[in-house]
Design a protein around this nucleic acid. Structure first.
Lengths: 223, 223
DNA sequence: TACATCATTGCAGAGTGTGCAAAGATGCAG
DNA sequence: CTGCATCTTTGCACACTCTGCAATGATGTA
């Protein structure tokens, strides 16, 4: 029990109390939800356990799901972005998947909480959905990152007006793969490490997208 | 105003009344929501307009969003499945996207309602999310369809134990593209037909996945 | 100490959704 | 067409999430 999640050092009693209470509610919520499941724990129960009024709970978290999902929409770290942008691998989709899954492999602030968060999201279909929906919200940023890589590789938006579309498609494909990976973890309870899982996924993409056995230039417009 | 959506011919007064009332509530809901927006229309308002009790509304639809999204989780038609399974195109992802978007191009039962449904889903982020989430629920069926195509092309599950994974990855990639297409329609308000849009998407996939400029066999495991 | 500022809370209420039992409509034999 | 079984509709009470508002309490600061 080390108190606040984001650990502000000392910013006055008010700030410290605030983040302490935040941590208390969070802890109570996770304890209850880990035991009884997300749907069987009410905000009232969390409030009883953490001795705050429901109104205060909503002042802090705004909604029930935010407690589990966390406040931030989960964006990749600067280091990972740098790696992705400068990489020169052939399969950009594979690289991109590595980028967006990397965030799930890191365990930065509070390992226990991080693990619990991931576990609960995996366990609870509703939360899983919302998590994916959130990722879509960061789409704009991700598209920019992909575009950056394009630029570094000599492809410019000015020269190629459809480059934005191409970047968005890379992101879209990557999101799909994300689904695949999480699904494999949740439904099949894949025992290996996330990195193993991801490598398998990457290999699969390569296999599928390079599977051009016949009439490789014909488009599938005739269905 | 032709009454019921699914139009059962004559199955007793009870059945007819039931589907009539279903249609009435549906119509009232769409009229209100098209005008005021999904969030600004309450179940109570729909009930007032269609002269039923709120309890009856929930007996029929179970939740507010079901009125707009429709009951069925939207699966591809048998004809489209057949086309997909027997096709021998090189890019299976492209074919798959054609398959799952085909359903959005057909306007089978009630054209007006169909158009309104699509419009509202596009307009309302929350509904859009739920729609995508629903599609994930049909994943199992879609995976089976892809596997069928594999089999027809001489690839067997017995011989290749990872074939299920490969099928799921095709589905996952397709879902991602789905996102791209819908996004382009909603955010950019792409003016062309859905078919145009889809063809553009298909071309993009080809371009991206065939973009193996360097070290094409190396995997992206080192990021 | 006095005052401003922010945090916490209670309260009232909207909105979605569910279980239950009463009242109404329909179906179907006799 | 009468009576009974069955299904539908409804009202009622209630749980739960979430919001606006105003009062109370704690902290920051001069």
């Amino acid at each position: 029990m080390n108190g606040a999640t984001s650990t502000a050092v000392d910013e006055g009693l008010r700030e410290r109390k605030r983040s302490a209470l935040h941590a208390v509610i969070e802890a109570a919520a996770f304890e209850l939800i880990l035991e009884h499941g997300y749907d069987d724990v009410t905000v009232g129960m969390i409030c009883d356990a953490s001795m705050v009024s429901p109104r205060t709970f909503f002042n802090y978290f705004g909604s029930k799901e935010v407690v589990v999902l966390g406040a931030a929409p989960a964006t990749p770290s600067a280091v990972d972005i740098e790696k992705f942008v400068t990489a020169d691998n052939a399969n950009i989709v594979a690289d991109f998947v590595v980028l967006i899954t990397a965030e799930f492999l890191d365990q930065r602030p509070n390992p226990e909480l991080f693990a619990a968060r991931r576990l609960l999201i995996q366990r609870t279909p509703a939360l899983f959905e919302r998590q994916l929906a959130r990722m879509t919200q960061t789409e704009k940023q991700l598209v920019q990152i992909v575009t950056q890589r394009f630029r570094l590789h000599g492809r410019d938006t000015g020269t190629n007006p459809d480059l934005d579309d191409e970047a968005r498609m890379v992101v879209a494909l990557g999101m799909g793969v994300m689904r695949f990976v999480m699904h494999k973890r949740i439904i099949e309870k894949f025992p290996g490490s996330s990195r193993e899982l991801m490598n398998g996924a990457v290999a699969l993409i390569e296999q599928i997208t390079s599977n051009k056995t016949t009439t490789s230039t014909q488009k599938a417009t005739d269905v």
